[in-house]
Write a protein that binds this DNA or RNA. Sequence first.
DNA 1: TCTGATTAATTGCTACGGCAAGCAAGTTCC
DNA 2: GGAACTTGCTTGCCGTAGCAATTAATCAGA
Lengths: 167, 167
Amino acid sequence: MPSPTPTQQPLTRDEEAVVRALGRVILVIPRVMDADLMREQRLPFSEYGTLMHLSEAPHRRMRMSELAAAGDLSLSGMTRVVTRLEAQGLVKRVKCAEDARGLNAVLTDDGLARLEQAWPTHLDSVRRHIIDHLDGLDLVQLARALERFATAVEDPREPSASGDASE
Amino acid sequence: MPSPTPTQQPLTRDEEAVVRALGRVILVIPRVMDADLMREQRLPFSEYGTLMHLSEAPHRRMRMSELAAAGDLSLSGMTRVVTRLEAQGLVKRVKCAEDARGLNAVLTDDGLARLEQAWPTHLDSVRRHIIDHLDGLDLVQLARALERFATAVEDPREPSASGDASE
DNA sequence: TCTGATTAATTGCTACGGCAAGCAAGTTCC
DNA sequence: GGAACTTGCTTGCCGTAGCAATTAATCAGA
């Protein structure tokens, strides 16, 4: 595939600054968010996020595959997260009524309590590491831009409309 | 430590949107950047970044610890990255003249060539996934905000001015 | 200069997450 | 109804990265 965009001039100064800073953010933010939760709540972010997704779902329950998608994790990864949560009694796996292949991960009362306990820590973390540094920016436009980052890609495994002839 | 900030109101709508979008970006961007480089160049991003840092350093050489800091990686992590790069002949480890404990990772000619070969792929990746979605935003302010995200934290292992009495 | 403390880097151990293989349940078509 | 295929989830295996322990070299003090 010959490059369709021969315009390889090396980014403007400002673009480069954004990319470099973003690169750092991408490495550092997950680390500190996880560290904060871990230190103050003994709860890794992967588990916190999973509890959060469940708490927001219709009956505090989601299918494993939904949950994996919500957390941007592979299904096998989510299997492990839920296994850990289940071992702590924060989540239960319940056979799905209308499709016996499926499982629902259900947030238990303990799980909800754990989430509510951890929430202030995480919120504080978010404020200190992110929110407090946003002044001067248009939040609506920023959110839109960031959403495009994440979604413009879709899943590489998804077959695109244009049939990929190569390979 | 009782929370010094009792103001735990749950973020405005816009703040929440930014945080959610950023959370997704943080998960997805590194994955797609790595995937692009991997697919088109067989080069993981950790190695690409390391070659890049070396190429920008004074004599195409950096101490292991410098390099680790530049790449936001632990020293042991960088040891492994450099080991891999050395095995491919892209980098050499050279004993440091003025401190025999230290090692300089030196970018070889092959390493520079590899970087130059991979560069367009990465640049294209950056454009498609990031730059192309920034319109409408003030890049200078965005970069500043992102830099504050990353630096406001410093290292948690670093003892802060206020002596931590707990523990 | 010899002893002890500190620093630079590597290695052992472990945890996490992805892919691919496996297994169980559902669907389709004859 | 049952053989072939698909779908939902789990498990085996592997690669990567961090922390703690280790080794080697330097520095500080008697």
